[in-house]
Amino acid sequence: MKKTVWKDVLLYMVLIILACLFLFPLVWMVISSFKTESRIFMDLTSFNAFLPTDFTFANYSAVFERIPFFRYIITSTLYVSVIVVLGLFVNSLAAYAFARMTFKGRDVLFAAVVALIIIPFESILLPLYLIVDELDWLNTYQALIVPFIANAFNIFMFRQFFLNLPKELEESARMDGASTLRIFFQIVIPLSKPVFITVALLTFITHWGDFMWPLIATTDESVRPLQVGMQFFFHQPPVKYGHIMAALTMGTIPLLLIFLFFQKYYVRGIASAGMKN
């Protein structure tokens, strides 16, 4: 019995040390965002760095004065949400065709789509930029959205799920004279809620972190997403630790909310993505 107590103590110690390692940067970030610039530097060399030795909102108001922070958040939320919504639509429709319909060239087409999963986005960056420029889309929401609606991997995920659905319901609906589109919306989608939520979450999180593409495709502040906006702010003189900490702290909030609300689905989602492959 004694042995297990010691084991627990040891475990807790390891856990606490690791937790400190994982949390100290974030704690410092949040705490510093409420301190004046000189206080941040003064506290750096002592444990005070992690204690609220000061309490001011000045850094936060400075952020809003210096950059259109809300605008960045709205831009990011808007464009990522549109990718998610249109993406669910387009990709699930395609996946349904590949899973359930018989038509000439289907298997070749699907094989081609699967093969596309392998192309890394980074290798098509420049030509994509030139195409988007040709369409006169630079500095517009279209540039941020349209190229990312169709997603080969998501089509693949949807198809896997649809293949595992029992066919009986769809067939009896067809007997009743329902159109394919109607079957899809009325029967298939309600049955496929889990995969829709998983794909939506994964898409949202992926594109929320988008950096390289918005960096080059948008130069106007009016369509600049949060990640790029924060990077610009980081380099924009005068560089103040407090201001940047405030911006970073606020920048974590949206994703934090997503995780809080969708925690259950999220964990299940990444886990299922893990199992399937």
């Binding site: 395609a94 065709a97 319909m101 098509i124 030509p127 195409i131």
Partner: peptide, 28 residues
């Protein structure tokens, strides 16, 4: 008819993938 129905479902994705993935890859 089935071909066009299938295309109607898969078409948008296929077109988008062609324009924004295959074309740039070939251009690169």
């Amino acid at each position: 008819r089935q071909f066009w129905l299938g295309m109607g479902f898969a078409g948008p994705a296929v077109v988008l993938l062609f324009v924004f993935l295959i074309m740039p890859a070939l251009l690169a």
